[in-house]
Amino acid sequence: MLEISKLSIRFNRLDRRLRQVHTETIHNLHLSVAAYEILAVVGSSGSGKSLLAHAILGILPNNAQVSGTIQFKGEELTPDRQRRIRGKEIALIPQSVQYLDPLIRVGEQVEQSVRQGDPVALRRKAFNKYNLADYVAKWFPFQLSGGMARKILVSTATVSGARLFIADEPTPGLDTFAMTETLNRFRQLAEDGCAMMLITHDIEAALTVADRIAVLYAGTVVEIAQRSDFTENGERLRHPYTKALWKALPGQQFVAIPGSQPLPDALPKGCVFAPRCSSATIECEESSPEPRTLRNGEVRCLHAT
């Protein structure tokens, strides 16, 4: 459904001396999502998760330069095609509730996203699924709680009839029941033949529904693993960063990762994780590894076995 190859995103800006500065925030990123699949994209803040979503949808700011290829259903996603199918064949479930129009009642906003069928009936069906009372349709966004607003955003995307969904941090602010319902809805969409990209920092939530996990670090994918690889002490995982993330979870060893993720304008010459990796060698510091297939997954590490 979606195939991304060698994606790089660079931003141009002026520094204090009015000189052009170029900052590459995503570099040489490879990713794919198939129909009937949920791919979770996980990583810390600043790793490039939301930028990836905006690049697919073609909603990056004007000072962004994009290279590489993004294909949807086997055809390249050109800027013109992105405009034509955005919100129709590809739908975003955004991170911020500010995506809701403050001047339009929320029921009308959901109904406007319906492409086929009775808008009112489909909106009511979505509201019922997420335990939203029908009278909420007459409310404006400022009258919603944070959790209710996120349910509206999810409803708006799911009634559109899209085939690819990009959910950007859709669960913060939801109670446990609502989060489970939302994730189960994503699972239902995948089982109906849709493709789902779930962008989140919550690995444990992702593992309840995702088929594969793509791990982002400093603007690139360092590993793509099967859900079943996240087990016990993480010995099935391939990349040192993924293993460290797994061990840092409260339900695991709760061990902090030393150091911090590098800023986009201060990336190391070689492997982006080398400065924090206890297994790094001189070779890691000098050359950036390319992604390779390993044990039914993908990894960007010179020494992964």
Rank of each mutant, 00 (worst) to 15 (best):
7 L>K: 05
13 R>I: 12
19 R>P: 09
23 T>A: 08
25 T>I: 13
32 S>C: 09
33 V>G: 06
35 A>W: 00
37 E>I: 06
39 L>V: 15
41 V>Q: 04
42 V>K: 03
59 I>C: 09
63 N>H: 13
66 V>P: 03
68 G>A: 08
74 G>Y: 00
81 R>G: 08
86 R>M: 05
86 R>F: 01
87 G>E: 05
92 L>F: 00
92 L>T: 00
94 P>K: 06
96 S>Q: 12
96 S>Y: 03
102 P>W: 07
106 V>L: 10
108 E>K: 14
111 E>L: 04
112 Q>R: 14
124 R>P: 01
130 Y>L: 12
131 N>V: 12
132 L>E: 05
141 P>D: 14
144 L>S: 10
147 G>P: 06
154 V>W: 02
158 T>N: 00
160 S>V: 02
163 R>D: 09
163 R>W: 02
164 L>K: 01
170 P>R: 04
190 A>P: 01
193 G>C: 08
199 I>A: 00
200 T>S: 05
214 A>I: 02
216 L>C: 07
217 Y>A: 03
222 V>E: 09
228 S>C: 11
229 D>P: 06
240 P>S: 14
240 P>Q: 12
242 T>W: 01
249 L>W: 01
251 G>D: 09
256 A>M: 11
261 Q>V: 13
293 T>S: 14
297 G>E: 12
298 E>C: 03
298 E>H: 11
304 A>M: 09
